[in-house]
Computed example of a mutant assay.
Amino acid sequence: MTKNKIKLVRIYDHEQPNGYRILVDRLWPRGMSKVKADLDEWDKQIGPSNELRKWFNHDDQKYAEFKQKYEQELDDNPALSDFIKNVKEQLAKQDVLFLYGAKNKEHNQAVVLKEYLKDKIN
């Protein structure tokens, strides 16, 4: 039996793997229609706060500090336990795709979220 995984997928990529599709951005991706996004859910409350998102501004120099601040926000986020429960339920059936809009595939909130959840999901 194969274990299902959390996969990170840029919502604008043409190749989209199969799985339960969760948009983890607080803002809707620019130029993306709801039909084309084909989401199972949009968990905007799990994304970084507007203040943190604006401060980070996808600056690679700030990524380590962004990661630390976002993890603190996740620790304090009352929506986290329901989010984790839902991700676990979906992983029992299929892969879960964390969709994001950022251009940088290595330094974004979806990367932080996946890493943060690693110990909490297993």
Rank of each mutant, 00 (worst) to 15 (best):
L74E: 08
K62D: 06
R10Y: 03
K67Q: 13
R10N: 15
S49K: 09
L97M: 00
V35L: 09
I22M: 12
Q90P: 11
N86L: 07
G47P: 12
K44N: 14
E89Q: 13
N104R: 09
L80N: 07
L74W: 03
K67T: 09
D25S: 11
K69I: 00
E89D: 10
N104S: 12
Q94S: 15
K5I: 07
K105N: 14
D95M: 02
L97E: 00
E106D: 15
T2F: 03
L23G: 00
D59L: 07
L74R: 09
L91H: 08
Y12N: 01
K36M: 01
K103T: 11
N77R: 03
R53E: 07
R30Y: 05
N86M: 07
L52T: 12
R53D: 09
Y100D: 04
K120F: 06
F66E: 04
D75K: 07
L23W: 01
N108G: 07
A110Y: 03
Q94R: 12
D82C: 00
L117S: 03
D59I: 07
E73W: 05
L117G: 01
F98Q: 07
W42L: 14
N18Y: 06
E71C: 13
K114G: 11
F66R: 05
L52R: 08
V35H: 09
E115K: 13
L113Q: 04
L99Q: 09
K3N: 07
N104V: 10
Q45M: 05
E15A: 14
N50P: 01
N104F: 10
N86D: 08
N104Y: 04
L113H: 02
F98T: 05
D59S: 07
D82E: 09
Y116R: 04
K105I: 15
N86T: 11
R10T: 10
F98N: 06
K5P: 10
D60V: 12
L113T: 05
Q72Y: 13
A79F: 10
I84Q: 00
Y63M: 06
D13F: 03
D95Y: 01
